[in-house]
């Protein structure tokens, strides 16, 4: 079994459009939407949800106003300014450290694990899709991503599915680290802008820290051929396997509007490019070592 994670650094470069296309091109795969706080894959892949379960993250503190003597001990101890002058804990600011509850002389603070999202296992015509919805303004997205990937691995093992494709979140922080850890290969989808180049360099540094073989494709490459060239040079100089360019094509958005993946919807230039990139990606994945499941 192998795992491919699609990331970008910069948001909005077309990760999800590329992932959705791969998910309809692959013969036997599981697709995971790891962009849990702005999940979009489900909008593109026709699916039926088979199972759902709640996701519990860390605990949060809550003051029982009847038991509280307003001594102020909790306010003094809280490092996150989460407790107001009238002793109400802001659940958004609460870090879940439990220090207030531990020290409260009246034991007036409850500290309980919170439900902070919902996980889904769905069936698409091309294989299972594992996705989630993180509650509004909830945290622990890294943990949720780890759990989704773990569920995907177990399902892959049960059903003998050889490939997991994961649509990663933007950035380089906690959920991204969770989405790329122990992947067999990464595909960076970038765009030919200075921002795209800058962000890709940071994502590549993360991939290097984790020692993961990395591929790169440039979306909307024709919007700025010069920067596209610079990105290609960077790839060459830094041991990134370049898998192709996707031209700017309005059919990418038309496919989105039609709730279909690009390769399902279109025969145009971008769709052709994505198909050829998928071939390259498969070939590259074939060269990475098989891991123990």
């Amino acid at each position: 079994m192998k795992e491919l994670t699609v990331i970008s650094g910069k948001g909005g470069t077309g990760k999800t459009s590329v992932t959705a296309s791969f998910a309809t091109l692959a013969d036997n795969r599981i697709v995971v939407d790891a962009d849990v706080d702005a999940a979009n894959l489900f909008l593109t892949l026709e699916h039926k949800t088979l199972e759902n379960s709640y996701f519990k993250g860390g605990s949060k503190a809550c003051i029982d106003k009847d038991a509280c003597i307003e001594c102020g001990d909790c306010r003094e101890r809280c490092q996150f300014d989460a407790i107001s002058e009238d002793f109400i804990i802001d659940p958004i600011a609460c870090e879940g450290c439990g220090v207030c509850a531990y020290f409260c002389p009246e034991k007036a603070i409850a500290f309980e694990q919170q439900v902070c999202g919902e996980k889904f296992v769905s069936q698409t015509p091309w294989g299972p899709m594992i996705h989630a919805r993180l509650g509004i303004a909830e945290e622990n997205s890294g943990l949720l991503v780890s759990q989704l990937r773990q569920e995907a691995r177990e399902l892959a093992k049960d059903k003998k599915i050889p490939l997991i494709i994961t649509d990663g979140p933007p950035g380089i922080g906690c959920p991204v680290i969770a989405a790329v850890t122990n992947a067999d290969a990464l595909l960076i989808v970038t765009e030919p802008t200075l921002s795209g180049l800058h962000d890709m360099e940071r994502v590549k540094a993360l991939a290097d820290q984790m020692n993961i073989p990395t591929m790169l494709c440039i979306n909307k490459a024709d919007l700025n051929p010069e920067t596209a060239g610079r990105i290609k040079n960077f790839a060459e100089d830094n041991g990134i396997h370049f898998v192709g360019e996707i031209p700017f094509d309005r059919e990418v958005i038309d496919a989105m509007k039609a709730s279909q993946s690009l390769v399902q919807f279109s025969q145009g230039a971008a769709a052709k490019a994505v198909k050829s990139i998928w071939k390259e990606v498969q070939q590259f994945m074939g060269t990475t070592l098989e891991r123990i499941m």
Partner: peptide, 14 residues
């Protein structure tokens, strides 16, 4: 079987 000299995977972060 031989003893590992170090971890063989990255941490799961969480």
């Amino acid at each position: 079987l031989s003893y590992a000299g170090g971890p063989n995977v990255e941490g799961h972060w969480v």
